[in-house]
Design a protein around this nucleic acid. Sequence first.
DNA 1: ACATTATTTCTATATTTATGGAAATATAGA
DNA 2: TCTATATTTCCATAAATATAGAAATAATGT
Lengths: 88, 88
Amino acid sequence: MENKLAVQLLSSIAQEARLEIFRLLVQAGAEGLAAGAIGEKLKIPASTLSFHLKELSFAGLISSRQVSRFIYYSANYEAMNGLLAYLT
Amino acid sequence: MENKLAVQLLSSIAQEARLEIFRLLVQAGAEGLAAGAIGEKLKIPASTLSFHLKELSFAGLISSRQVSRFIYYSANYEAMNGLLAYLT
DNA sequence: ACATTATTTCTATATTTATGGAAATATAGA
DNA sequence: TCTATATTTCCATAAATATAGAAATAATGT
């Protein structure tokens, strides 16, 4: 992994809301959680949440899939493991 | 470890210059490196470097000790390990 | 087609963080 | 004490990031 990529991954979770979101998604497991459920659980306004989800997605730490009108987000363990490996 | 503390640690290395500094100090081992040597190696102006070193110190990721006119900085492995543990 | 619900994009604004020159401070040798 | 060198603090400025309301888009069932 390269420095810049590592910084991107780190930046994406170096933020309270995003770290909470990520950890919540880790707990949620493979099925993940719909955006609305995340926002409700963490009390984050929809547009703010969307901004953070985009950041995490862009960094590759989470992925999403559409289920009817909902968009389910789930944690990407591999990306996180890659980061941990780089830091060690 | 608590969320806010983790964010603080993450923020301190979620920055290109600081991640480079930290990694350089990990390589340097227990003896560490003087501020000037770090700045020279990484081509960072003194005042900018000082700012970043303060950030890393504040987060507890590095520590410093004075040796004559030099200030040697070294990596704090424990802090990093604590962070990694939290993220896993 | 319409109404409903979920999510995102747009936009402005606020806040935080980074940068580096100049001046100040600290340490030590002559 | 004077001088040289190392590092930090001060300061202004620039750049990046976060926030959230309002409007737009998307998906679905009726």
